[in-house]
Design a protein around this nucleic acid. Sequence first.
DNA 1: GTTGACTTTGCCGTTGCGTCAAGGTCCAGC
DNA 2: GCTGGACCTTGACGCAACGGCAAAGTCAAC
Lengths: 252, 252
Amino acid sequence: MAWSITEVARMAGVTSRTLRHYDAIGLLAPAYVGINGYRYYEQPQLLRLQQVLLLRELGLSLETIAEVLTGQRDRVDALRGHQEWLRAEQQRLARLAATVARTIEHLQEGTVMTASEMFDGFSRRRAETEEALAARYGDGVREHFAAAGERTKGWTRQDYLDAQKEGERLDARVLQLLRCGVAPETPEALDVIADHHRAVARHWSPDKVSYAGLGQLYLDDPQYRARYDAQDPALARYYRDAITAYAEQRLN
Amino acid sequence: MAWSITEVARMAGVTSRTLRHYDAIGLLAPAYVGINGYRYYEQPQLLRLQQVLLLRELGLSLETIAEVLTGQRDRVDALRGHQEWLRAEQQRLARLAATVARTIEHLQEGTVMTASEMFDGFSRRRAETEEALAARYGDGVREHFAAAGERTKGWTRQDYLDAQKEGERLDARVLQLLRCGVAPETPEALDVIADHHRAVARHWSPDKVSYAGLGQLYLDDPQYRARYDAQDPALARYYRDAITAYAEQRLN
DNA sequence: GTTGACTTTGCCGTTGCGTCAAGGTCCAGC
DNA sequence: GCTGGACCTTGACGCAACGGCAAAGTCAAC
């Protein structure tokens, strides 16, 4: 008993285009293909399609479904992961909704919502760093940032741009070291970190401990972590190791 | 004071690719373009970008943002709509999570989750129709469906497929009438509806009132409505009008 | 033999960019 | 004047899961 593509589509409540797609991505191949090129499906394919649609309705991606059906991945395992994703997504939406609500209120009150400073990438990153460090090491670190604020009071936007540019160049140099297999505690690496330290010192006065703390932050803080992971999954750790070595060997 | 694309990108914390994209879709054009083709941005563009990113962080689509910034659409209005969407999406995810949880339980209990009948598009649709009608007219209609179940007891899968195929052909014919401007109460339209009535009567015994109720259902039930709306936004209403006219004129 | 329903492959469109690729431009140092 | 490196341009593909359309071949019934 073989069914044509449209017949199967009707039985399952999907379109024939969908079945062709599933064939194309290797998720569900027909039982056989006629000499005319027509796809023909039989009972086992219907059962498999049933499984596919069941998992699809739960929101799993076709890729995950394929993994589950080939047995590469456990169903319960995949579903648990999906459930976690669903929860995270729900929370994200909840936060968004809250922010939207607040924004609406502000708009209605006529508050102009300047906050233009917050849209300077540089100062925003500094604020985030302050929060992250304060969360890890207590409010004591905030005085460091207050001092940094004093020091950069006269900076123009151009100064910030230059500082940011230098930071990116440093990232590129460290990435080079990593890619070339240079160990993070070698003098070559530490020389690059020396430039990093000099750059940081322009708007902050880290001592041995707090500079090493910054290195650790690169690894632990989700914001920094994501930024470095985007370039190389090993970059954050490399940065931390190099900074730690630098603090140990060249600071006191 | 003009800034290059990368400078603006750094200030705003986005990539230059993003700014080029915004230029391409007309969301944010540079202040001017040099003879070398370079994009240059000035203060007003930065302010606009700030607005864009603010709304983007709230989850609005770039299209909506563009409408808001051109003044075609009110901010508060757009945000309210977005908020509703967020709520609906959250609820959808919550339902999904609940279903996933139940599925995990079933899997762990070893329940095999056959429910193969539920994957027959036809019987599923019938179940949905029963629920929808029961919700509207009370449980009294369920006996109609029980009788239909009796009548289709001996049907093979092929019979269901044929019935479904006929249903789709009828939809196509009605759509033709609609597109050609044939009014729903004309004899020509009623003749098509007569075939519809014959087809329905094979697994159901509608009287004048309940057949008209089915027509109304096409318009009111979200499932049916979506199915017809996909073909033409006026199809559901046309169906209802034609069925109502048929019930009035040719049934008693 | 002619419809009409059905099938095939192939390609564009959706959202918001990331990521090359190929090539032109700018500026500083020699 | 030349070179190198950082910067800029346009163009095109890729993603997820198909929808929709076009051109062309196939099948079955009348």
